[in-house]
């Protein structure tokens, strides 16, 4: 046997390998290309190449009226469309200096918290699926469908609801809304237990999430990271507490935080956030006040149909609003 070759194999010289991942990839959710530099099976460098889903939404918004933009906000983060609607509308309402009525605020809180749950479910499901736990995806999608049923009940659409409008809601909540949400509140906590049983102590899950993708709290803040990813780093920061909107200061809920800022902590934070969201929904559902579902500001919100048919002013407002759209300039002048 050639001794030289044997010596070489005993102490192999390693060099890194470049591997292209994406933009189409077996675990693609959204399209991203990452150029990976591998040392064996360890990634030593990752260079992302973004823009495969660049949609030009801001540019499209530029020549739309304020109401026409709402459907576009649905399609920005499409697993949490109602939250996008709310963020945009709060800005528009601030510009117009109008306030949604209490009933609309409560319904907005309920639906955005349900959206948060739906979004977290999608994260848990697809992430577990990528790691090889197909069951979790099927369970998570099953529960998400219940939430989509609620969105469909109020708006007629499963995903792109555009249900929140300037000054309140698109229409009143139907009678079946409350029992449907109550049913979710009753059944969903057990389902979170199911995910915990499947994942939290699962050895494969632990191996692939603990210590992976660690971000320190300082780095996260410097990079502008927010949401559960930031909270998993240990920073106790939540816009619902630090700068409350839509009456969030009236509800009791905790901010779950992690310690290590790795994928596992993000998973734990998200699971706990789902529980906290249920708490908020429970309180909000008990306290939905009576009243109108939209603040009827003339020239901003469409007048009720009966008035349009009987009142010339209302007819003009409807006509102007539909044909010209909302003019911020005119409103602020009044």
């Amino acid at each position: 046997m050639n001794v030289e070759i044997l010596k070489k194999t005993e102490k192999p010289e390693t060099e890194t390998m470049i591997l292209n991942m994406g933009p189409h990839h077996p675990s693609t959710h959204g399209v991203l290309r990452v150029i990976l530099e591998l040392d064996g099976e360890t990634i030593v460098k990752a260079t992302p190449d973004i823009g495969f889903l660049h949609t030009g939404i801001e540019k499209t918004m530029e020549n739309k009226t304020y109401n026409q933009v709402i459907p576009l906000t649905d399609r920005m983060d499409y697993v949490a469309s109602l939250s996008n609607n709310l963020a945009y509308l709060l800005a528009v309402e601030k510009l117009l200096d109008i306030q949604a009525p209490p009933k609309a605020e409560f319904v907005r809180v309920i639906l955005t918290e349900l959206t948060r749950i739906a979004s977290h479910l999608w994260w848990v499901g697809t992430h577990a699926h990528d790691i090889g736990a197909m069951t979790v995806l099927l369970y998570a999608v099953r529960e998400r469908e219940k939430l989509l049923d609620i969105f469909e009940l109020v708006s007629g659409q499963r995903m792109m609801t555009s249900y929140f409008r300037i000054g309140g809601l698109a229409k009143d909540i139907p009678e079946e809304f409350e029992p449907k949400v109550r049913e979710v509140l009753k059944t969903f906590p057990d389902k979170i237990e199911d995910y915990e049983n499947l994942l939290t102590k699962n050895r494969i899950w632990l191996n692939r999430t603990v210590g992976v993708g660690t971000i320190s709290a300082e780095d996260a803040i410097d990079l502008g990271v927010s949401g559960p990813v930031l909270r998993a780093c240990g920073a106790e920061w939540d816009i619902r507490k630090s700068n409350p909107y839509s009456g969030y200061d009236e509800f009791a809920f905790d901010i779950p935080t992690g310690k290590n800022g790795d994928v596992y902590d993000r998973y734990l934070v998200r699971l706990e956030e789902m529980r906290q969201s249920l708490r908020i929904v429970n309180q909000a559902l008990d306290g939905i006040p009576e009243g109108d579902f939209v603040e009827r500001v003339p020239g901003v919100v469409l007048p009720p149909k009966e008035e349009v048919l009987s009142n010339i002013e209302a007819l003009i407002f409807q006509f102007k609003l539909v044909v010209e759209g909302l003019s911020l300039h005119r409103i602020t002048q009044r």
């Binding site: 189409h24 077996p26 693609t28 959710h29 959204g30 399209v31 889903l53 949609t55 399609r75 499409y78 697993v79 999608w122 697809t126 995806l137 099927l138 369970y139 999608v141 099953r142 998400r144 469908e145 499963r158 995903m159 792109m160």
Partner: peptide, 19 residues
């Protein structure tokens, strides 16, 4: 082909999944 691009991919996965 397991190939998702945007919002419709979410509905496509729902079509494949439990319900």
């Amino acid at each position: 082909f397991g190939f998702g691009l945007a919002c419709c991919a979410i509905e496509m996965i729902c079509t494949f999944a439990s319900r």
